[in-house]
Amino acid sequence: MAPESPDRAHAVAFTLNGEAVRAHVPARMHLGDLLRESFGLTGVHLGCEHGVCGACTILVDGRAVRACLMLGVQADGATVETVEGLTESGRIRDLQDAFHTRNALQCGYCTPGMLVTATELLNDADAATSREEIRAAIAGNYCRCTGYHAIVDAIAATAEARRDGPKNSRREAAE
């Protein structure tokens, strides 16, 4: 069902936060705007719309990407997850708890993108998670409020808890 012929708008179908969805999308609309405007997923924050700030980071086919640097039409056939879907699934509850108890957020505008970036890092079983490595992993997510220290704390604590936790709970968390 790929839009093989040129057009200024296309019908797309994809899986969004576990649900099959359809939309008619202007070709020029980036995925961030599509998710916000057609699906009300306002947890996808637009901070720069040129791929630098990281606020719009979402998962596409399980990988973190910038929603502002993908076209909405390119979601066709993909599996897209936003912070709303990750929240509802409970998969990042431990990470959210760690952010909350350490106050690893202030205004909250970077937070969804930061959580998605951390989700990918924590899902990567091979990823080492020293403070320096965590800093490198989130180096593409701008936060003006916190100073990053507490964010690094929260991700490190979650990584450690998942590593030390019972095997089955870790698998659950990573699924």
Binding site: G43, V83, E84, L105, G108, Y109, T111
Partner: peptide
């Protein structure tokens, strides 16, 4: 060191900024 009550909403992407 009490966590902020309004932070949970922001952690779930449920903040309401002007553009929302």
């Amino acid at each position: 060191s009490v966590p902020r009550p309004n932070a949970r909403r922001l952690l779930e992407g449920r903040g309401v900024y002007v553009d929302d």
